[in-house]
Design a protein around this nucleic acid. Structure first.
Lengths: 176, 176
DNA sequence: GTGAACATGTAAATTGTTACATGATTAC
DNA sequence: GTAATCATGTAACAATTTACATGTTCAC
């Protein structure tokens, strides 16, 4: 899902500003997509140009804030995108990349990388658990439970094998 | 990890052609990174220009094949990259995106998406299990076991809740 | 008053995908 | 002979990150 579709997705639940979209994408969609502000604003410009979203009148004149609303045409486009989705997931994991090459790294860096990963996983767990599950659709809850299941598996694995691997890598290095 | 570093990573284990790199990245690194041919060839050109890799003499003259080898400078650069890695992982999951918006989709598409996801997970499991674990370093084995743990959790979740969610979404839709 | 968070936008640079274009080798 | 796989490379296009540039509002 690209940034344009991510924006349409958030807006399908309610109006938002560009800045608000960044928060929403991070908070609600963090487990399946991400977008930075520098990508969101141009995306909103394109969506406006193609009539998929529109700006609604600004109540607060002092604060320069534009609030966007999805149009019927935008909803149709969102539906279109959804029907052509695939089950392929892409993962970019600097953590695993590092460990794959742990034999080339300082032990301190390996250690730091593992600590950071555990912290990330716990943060992700916290984020997912803080989402308002009761107000969500079945599908939304499903994705959160799915993400929680894999996150929990990651944490469990790190707790089970994290400490041991550090000493194992260290031992292995001595023997090489 | 960008494509350049991915290429250096493969080459740190042995010489390879551009085409061979694509296979290796897919087969060994599929759980933490990916690269297409259209990205690999330009990356190799840049790495050659900066002296991080070099072409070695071609045995077979009829087949237009260039074999690359990492240089000492390339190994140093790889080490540099590795020491600045972070624990943050980015996931792009059209599958979860789709389910998050399942209330806007055709039931057929939801069904297909789930089938595709399970097939992907099983394929990933097969790939990971077919890797030559005994010939690997501790760190490499760790990443594979980690990836297998999260993949297994995904499969288990789908088996446990996959069928139920389809009927739940359908029921929910009727009630809206 | 000061720092965090809110708020918008642009631009350079990089990065990457997909498709195009071409041809050899291998296994059936 | 024909399909799959091996093999290289370019180019158009799309997408994205990071940094720059600016200003407001809110809570302490």
């Amino acid at each position: 899902m690209d940034v344009r579709t991510l924006c349409l997705g958030v807006l399908s639940f309610g109006d938002s500003s560009g800045y608000g979209l960044r928060r929403s994408i991070k908070d609600w969609f963090g487990h399946f997509g991400q977008a930075s502000l520098g990508a969101i604003y141009p995306a909103l410009a394109k969506l406006t140009a193609s009539g998929e979203i529109e700006t609604i009148d600004n109540v607060n004149a002092s604060l320069e804030k534009r609030v966007f609303r999805i149009t019927e045409s935008g909803r149709a486009k969102l539906r279109d995108h959804l029907s052509s989705l695939s089950g392929q997931e892409t993962v970019r994991s600097p953590f695993m990349a590092g460990l794959f090459f742990a034999h080339l790294m300082d032990m301190d860096d390996v250690h730091r990388l593992m600590d950071e990963r555990v912290a990330e996983l716990r943060g992700e767990q916290r984020r997912l658990r803080s989402l308002p599950m009761t107000e969500m659709t079945e599908g939304q809850r499903f994705t959160i439970r799915y993400a929680l299941a894999t996150t929990a598996a990651g944490i469990a694995f790190m707790e089970r094998e994290g400490r041991a691997i550090i000493t194992a890598i260290d031992r292995e290095r001595d023997s090489l």
